[in-house]
């Protein structure tokens, strides 16, 4: 362990350590970030939701997109598993179905970054998944 000798040392260390509490800070003010919920019920896990979630977390970080990725229960769209809900700050949430890693990548690049719509949106009469 190196000692902190200067303020620059501290700032550098702070940057490195930021991830330690990032998740908690974002959770406290999630509304300011892109919020992604991954449907992780049994059917979701079976259809690869876990891998999608891992991919999202990694990819978002690599691309410097501040986002909060959480998991949620069955979204009620078993037919379209894995499903994810994406909510950009100040916008209505949108649910995507049949999300694999490739699709996830597309959602990040097109919808999250550019605001372009992507195929696979599950429309209307869905219920917000917050409350199962």
């Amino acid at each position: 362990m190196t000692k902190i000798k200067t303020l620059a040392d501290l700032k550098k260390m702070k940057e490195e350590l930021q991830t330690k509490v990032d998740l908690r800070e974002k959770g406290d003010s999630a509304e300011n970030y892109v919020q992604i919920k991954v449907g992780m019920a049994t059917s979701g896990i079976a259809s690869g939701a876990k891998q999608v979630m891992d991919f999202l977390i990694e990819a978002l970080e690599k691309r410097n997109i501040e986002a909060v990725v959480t998991q949620t229960g069955d979204m009620g769209y078993c037919f379209a598993e894995p499903t994810i809900e994406v909510k950009k700050p100040g916008e209505e949430p949108i649910v995507f179905g049949y999300v694999d890693m490739k699709k996830a990548d597309e959602i990040i690049e097109k919808y999250i970054k550019l605001g372009e719509l992507v195929d696979g949106i599950i429309p209307v009469n869905y219920q917000v998944i917050d409350d199962k």
Binding site: L10, K11, M13, K14, L17, K20, V21, E25
Partner: peptide, 11 residues
């Protein structure tokens, strides 16, 4: 202490 530093501790 690292968690404190991550929260801008000692800044």
């Amino acid at each position: 202490v690292e968690e404190y530093i991550a929260r801008e501790g000692y800044m």
